[in-house]
Design a protein around this nucleic acid. Structure first.
Lengths: 213, 213
DNA sequence: TCAAAACATGAGTGAGTCTCACATTTGCAA
DNA sequence: TTGCAAATGTGAGACTCACTCATGTTTTGA
């Protein structure tokens, strides 16, 4: 809501640092800025995070902050990108050596659990993710990422179900993946017991859809 | 992102007009304010909507705006509440006289289509919905609403599948409902053709889950 | 008819983002 | 070693809002 974007940059210079740190010193400072931002988001959410606070906690001036991040949003994006990369690695690792349907089932289940635990434990991810819904550019980023992740599923499914129509496979995988993100988001916003039930129900649902009854 | 909430009201006086219009004149003015806000949200999104602009377009002063809405958020909420009420009516109408499984299938399918069309056609709904993800209070409102809607499903399912465990039924219905909202949201953010495929896939998935193969 | 309640107004307040003119440090070639 | 250009660093203050409040105007109802 709202937004104090002083000079609306029209076509946002999406997520790219205004200048990328080339010296060791500045690279460390940028790290400190990200760490400070991460801590503040964890404490109060990105909406309540103040640029001045980030600068202060990182031990830099506000000008330095804007030297490397074009705007407040960009800091959130930078954090989002890290988590994205991290989870990509997680996913490919979990799925790459699946050989049969049983293997797939347990890999899928494990994957969902990892996501669930990650969201439960990491307030920053939750925050970034909800920003993702409101912000057009972030949403696009997330969709692309989600598609990439669904591709991992498709790759595996093509081996397990070689006779299924590829387009259908693609659609199903993408849908199931997105449903998974929605399910986890839902699960963490209700009490733990119900959350667990919902995640379990999602697993059944997703697996039924992906590899049949 | 961001937020210019000047005097953070601590425990937000959720969505209740600061003063409800009692005279005919002011009721009309409030209508104009909501209409102006709705138009502006449709044009640029609620984030870019400026209170000054709303006032100007409604032909009232900014002070009058704050006479009836405690803050910017409240305007979005008021709009959200209208749509919520509208869709509630829609849902109960579609589900109330379902007698058998076949009837349920077509009612469910119709319901999903209505939602899909609604989101495709109404930019304000889309915007309000995404705000719902970022804002804690709005999210709670939406969850409660979603639960209420899922109850309609549960009521019907209890008739169709009287031998199923009620808790499981509840969980499944709630999950399927939320998945539906996520599916529609997803569908409108990709191109039309893929969106249609995704919605169709969701229908299969939801029905399979709710009334079996 | 008149006082109280409801309504209307918009300049002003303050919180917060982002800029910019100027200072300092680093890398590196002469 | 020296010196200069590029990279960095700084923070006062410009600017953009959401929201307030002191001060009028209109409606209601007794």
């Amino acid at each position: 809501m709202d937004g104090k974007v002083a000079a609306k940059p029209d076509q946002a210079a999406i997520a790219s640092p205004r200048r990328s740190p080339s010296q060791q010193r500045s690279r460390e400072r940028v790290e400190r800025m990200l760490a400070a931002a991460s801590a503040l988001i964890a404490e109060q959410g990105s909406d309540a995070m103040r640029m001045g606070e980030v600068a202060e906690r990182a031990g830099v001036s506000i000008g330095s902050l804007y030297q490397f991040f074009p705007d407040k949003q960009a800091i959130v994006w930078a954090l989002a990108e890290r988590y994205t990369a991290e989870s990509q690695a997680c996913i490919s690792a979990a799925l790459e050596d699946v050989g049969d349907v049983e293997g797939f089932k347990s890999a899928f289940s494990e994957l969902v659990d990892i996501y669930y635990q990650l969201f439960l434990a990491e307030p920053v991810i939750r925050d970034v993710w909800s920003g993702t819904q409101a912000d057009k550019a972030l949403r696009a980023l997330e969709l692309a990422d989600s598609r990439a992740n669904a591709e991992f599923l498709v790759a595996v499914l093509k081996r397990l179900r070689p006779d299924t129509d590829p387009v259908e496979l693609e659609t199903t995988a993408f849908l199931v993946w997105q449903m998974g993100e929605a399910a986890v988001r839902l699960a963490i916003s209700v009490d733990r017991e119900e959350g667990d039930r919902l995640v379990a129900a999602y697993k059944r649902m997703g697996l039924r859809e992906l590899v049949g009854e």
